[in-house]
């Protein structure tokens, strides 16, 4: 049993993937809680598609792709935050902005001087993380954790009582922007290493799971980090033993954690109701 867990991480390529998962687990467990609580999971899922025109534009202008991706993400995040001021719900706003950016990306990509395969950058691979990816994930983890710690009371106040946040001296619009920029940064760093699919699963899965069993936000965040780290590393170990696609196994492990918690909660409710009766 111990060997089943430890064996995979004797392999350098698996160990690296695990380190990246732990770093991004810490980052996305905490940030993911605010994404789930603010109801912007749709933005988290779709934002990465907004990178495409940025990537193509950067390739055409000859500037670093990372920079182009960053510009694309920030444009997308800010546009989504602004469109939300209309009577449209966040998911509709996200949908409109991302559709426009995707269309623009496809048209830009038709330019004869655009290189092929830029789209494949969005399918980053967990087992191909570079030293730069690890360093970026660690640095971003520190920045995001620090900001979430400092902003915690403000986030709590605004999240709980958005309608009256202004009366309590906090601007919800400004906070939306901060959250959107943090999400854009996390997406930028994580998509290159993990790909869009794994990023959204890491951001939303553990937080949604922790929400099922948490009464307060701070413990929810700690629990989400723990779930993100344990479930994703377990998924990687399963990929090693069962010879199945690595990133997909991590996603399925995160989804399984949610399902098991949901089922466990249901059983606990039934048992409690029985013992009370």
């Amino acid at each position: 049993m111990i060997g089943w867990i430890t064996d995979p991480f004797g392999e350098p390529i698996v160990l690296r993937g695990a380190v990246e998962l732990v770093l991004l687990g810490v980052l996305s467990g905490g940030l993911g809680c605010w994404i789930v609580l603010s109801g912007v999971s749709s933005t988290a899922e779709s934002l990465s598609h907004g990178m495409l025109p940025g990537l193509v534009g950067a390739a055409l202008l000859g500037i670093p792709l990372l920079l182009g991706g960053a510009v694309g993400l920030v444009v997308a995040a800010v546009a989504i935050a602004l469109v939300q001021r209309s009577p449209l719900t966040p998911d509709v706003a996200t949908s409109v902005v991302i559709t426009g950016l995707l269309g623009a990306g496809v048209l830009l990509g038709l330019s004869p001087s655009a290189p092929a395969g830029l789209g494949s950058l969005l399918f980053g691979d967990l087992l191909g993380v570079s030293d730069l990816d690890l360093a970026l994930a660690a640095a971003l983890g520190v920045v995001v954790t620090l900001l979430l710690f400092l902003l915690h009371p403000t986030l709590l106040l605004t999240g709980f009582d958005r309608l009256n946040a202004t009366a309590l001296g906090r601007s919800p619009a400004r906070l939306d922007l901060v959250l959107a920029v943090l999400l854009a940064l996390a997406t930028l760093v994580a998509v290159q290493a993990l790909g869009t699919l794994l990023v959204v699963a890491m951001l939303v899965g553990p937080a949604a799971t922790a929400r099922l069993v948490s009464r307060r936000v701070a413990p929810m965040m700690l629990l989400a980090v723990a779930i993100a780290v344990v479930a994703s590393v377990a998924g990687l170990a399963a990929s090693y033993h069962a010879n199945l696609a690595a990133g997909a196994c991590v996603v399925l492990a995160l989804a399984a954690a949610f399902c098991m918690t949901l089922a466990g909660r249901g059983i606990a409710h039934v048992v409690l109701a029985r013992s009370a009766a």
């Binding site: 609580l37 400092l150 902003l151 009371p153 403000t154 709590l156 106040l157 999240g159 709980f160 009582d161 958005r162 309608l163 009256n164 309590l168 001296g169 906090r170 929400r211 948490s214 009464r215 307060r216 936000v217 929810m220």
Partner: peptide, 24 residues
């Protein structure tokens, strides 16, 4: 008008009054 699905306790909510007097 307040969110009932938000994971905060009564003490957390009362404490928000103190937060409103502080810089961010």
């Amino acid at each position: 008008r307040s969110r009932l699905d938000f994971p905060v306790t009564a003490l957390d909510v009362a404490l928000m009054g103190a937060v409103s007097r502080m810089p961010w």
